[in-house]
Design a protein around this nucleic acid. Structure first.
Lengths: 144, 144
DNA sequence: GGATATTTGTTGTCATACTAACAATATGTA
DNA sequence: TACATATTGTTAGTATGACAACAAATATCC
C-alpha cells in the first residue's frame, strides 16, 4: 500500500461528495427552485416514510439532531413540512410533508434521477456494487 | 440500474467522507491537538510544496479561495503558517510553514498514516484502484 | 413513590462550503 | 498612454457539520 494513501482517498471522497452535491444544487438553482440538496434529501425520505420523529429522521438521513432541527426549521418556513405533536410522547414531534412538499417531491424526483444518470456515465452496475462495498467497509472500520 | 441509485450513492459518499474526517478529527482531539482536519490538509501540502500563492494552494487542496483565506487566517493565528509578500505580484501572498508548522507535520504524519490503515482494513490495493477510478469518473462526469 | 438516568429536541459556538460582490493590482489592447 | 478586462485575495450572507450544554419529558431503579 502506498504510503500516502490516506490523504489520497480521503481527498477523493471529499471532493467527489462535494462535486455531486454541487452539481445537483446547480440544477435546483438553474430552475429557480429555492431548496438545498440536504433539504431535498429530507423531504424525499419524508415522502417514503411519514410519522417519523426527528431522531428517527436524523438516523435515516445520516444527519445529527441539531442539524436536522435546523433543516426542518427551514423546510417549515418554506411551507414544505410541518411538525405535529406526538400523540403519546410529549417530547417528540412527528414531521410531515405538506401538500406543497409532496408536490415538490413529485416534481423533482425524475430530475434527480436524471442527475444520477449523468454522474454514473461510463460506470457499470458492478462498479456500483464495488463502490458500495468499499465505502461500507470504510464506514464500518471507523464506526464507534 | 436501480431507479433510486442516485440517492443511494450520493448518501454513501457523503456519510463516508464525513466519517473519515470525523475519525481523524477525533484522533486530533484525543491528543489535545488544536487543529482541524482541513487545516491539516493545508499544512501537509505546504510541507511538500512551498512558495505557492493562495489561489494555487486552493487549487491543489480542492478548496475555494474564500475558504482557503479563512483556513490560512486560522493557521497564521496558531503560528503554523505565515503569509509572505510576493516579490513581483503585489496582489498575492505566498504561504509558508513556520518552524512550528513543520514540527506539526513531522509529528502527525505517522499518526495520519496509522489512521489511514485503520480505515482500509479488509480492503486491498485493487479496491483502492477501483475506488479511485470510480470517484474520478463521477467527478469528471459532473465537471463543468 | 421518588430519586436518578435517559431521551428528545433546541440553542450556541466554531469551522467549512458556496455564492456574490468588492478593492487592489496586473494585463491586454486601442 | 489610457481604458477595459482579468486576477488575487477578502468580506458578507446563508447553509451545513460537529460538539457541548440545556430544559422538558419519560423511563428506570431502589
Amino acid at each position: 500500500m502506498a504510503k500516502e494513501l490516506f490523504s489520497t482517498y480521503s481527498y477523493l471522497l471529499d471532493r467527489t461528495a462535494r462535486k455531486v452535491k454541487q452539481y445537483a444544487q446547480r440544477r435546483f438553482n438553474n430552475e429557480q427552485y429555492d431548496i438545498t440538496v440536504d433539504q431535498w434529501i429530507i423531504i424525499k425520505h419524508l415522502n417514503q416514510s411519514n410519522d417519523l420523529n426527528q431522531t428517527q429522521l436524523a438516523e435515516i438521513t445520516g444527519k445529527d439532531t441539531p442539524t436536522l432541527t435546523r433543516i426542518i426549521d427551514l423546510l417549515c418556513k418554506k411551507g414544505l413540512t410541518e411538525r405535529r405533536i406526538h400523540p403519546t410522547d410529549r417530547r417528540c414531534f412527528t414531521v410531515h410533508l405538506t401538500e406543497q412538499g409532496q408536490q415538490t417531491v413529485l416534481k423533482w424526483t425524475p430530475k434527480m434521477a436524471e442527475i444520477r444518470m449523468k454522474a454514473w456515465e461510463n460506470l457499470t452496475e458492478d462498479d456500483y456494487i464495488n463502490l458500495k462495498r468499499i465505502l461500507d467497509t470504510i464506514y464500518n472500520n471507523l464506526d464507534d
